[in-house]
């Protein structure tokens, strides 16, 4: 149980996918302009990370490893995740239109996001069990959510700030992103000390 909590918390704070592992930077910079689109995107990421792990983990264990095809991991995972998200979108549209509407365009957008692929591959590299892998995916999604929401708050402040002409737009956004990710360094070691093994 403690291990699951450690995995969850470290995925959210210490190994935050955006701010520590620098995966999923594209939506982090692209969709964080407004809070509601940032939330929609993040919810879709959490959702897709979970189902992608749930599907790719068995494929790795029962299909690739027994046949010594581990080197096909990347391409098979991409293929499966892309098809899966399309399928989920069709099913959602039919049966849960409300959820489909709120996840909106973000669902197909993140099919080939590196954060999603990164989670599934790192779950295997870390040697997690299925449950641990699922918890790690949830934590990673929540970490993405946290980073997106925080950063959309930062950006709304930047919008109203008086910025030198040469820094306007992307430069100041990148500077703000780097400072935000620096602040996450402060979490290093916190979890280990909270749950001494």
């Amino acid at each position: 149980m403690t291990k699951l909590i450690v995995i969850l918390l470290s995925a959210v704070f210490i190994n935050n996918y955006v701010l520590s592992r620098f995966l999923g930077i594209c939506p982090f910079l692209g969709v964080s302009k407004k809070l509601d689109s940032a939330t929609g995107m993040s919810l879709a990421v959490i959702f897709v990370m979970m189902i992608a792990t749930a599907v790719t983990f068995p494929i790795q264990i029962y299909l690739l490893v027994p046949n010594h095809l581990e080197y096909l991991q990347t391409i098979v995972f991409i293929l499966v995740i892309a098809a899966l998200v399309q399928l989920v979108e069709i099913v959602l549209k039919r049966y849960i239109p409300a959820l489909h509407k709120s996840l909106g365009v973000y669902l197909p957008l993140i099919t080939t996001n590196c954060a999603v692929l990164g989670v599934t591959i790192l779950n295997i590299d870390e040697g997690y069990t299925f449950l641990e892998a699922m918890v790690n995916s949830l934590g990673s999604g929540l970490g993405f959510f946290l980073a997106m929401v925080m950063f959309s708050g930062v950006r709304s402040k930047i919008e109203g700030a008086d910025i030198p002409e040469s820094f306007k737009g992307l430069p100041v956004t990148l500077i703000a992103a780097s400072i935000t990710s620096l602040s996450f360094l402060g979490f290093g070691g916190v979890i280990e000390n909270m749950f001494p093994v």
């Binding site: 299909l63 046949n67 095809l69 080197y71 096909l72 391409i75 098979v76 293929l79 499966v80 892309a82 098809a83 899966l84 399309q86 399928l87 069709i90 099913v91 549209k93 039919r94 049966y95 239109p97």
Partner: peptide, 27 residues
């Protein structure tokens, strides 16, 4: 062949599932 065939099979299966799903569950 060992590398290509599994990927092709997975691709074909995914495609078939998507086609069936989009036909069955068309809104």
């Amino acid at each position: 062949l060992i590398a290509v065939i599994p990927v092709v099979i997975i691709g074909v299966v995914c495609a078939a599932v998507l086609v069936v799903a989009s036909k069955l569950m068309a809104v």
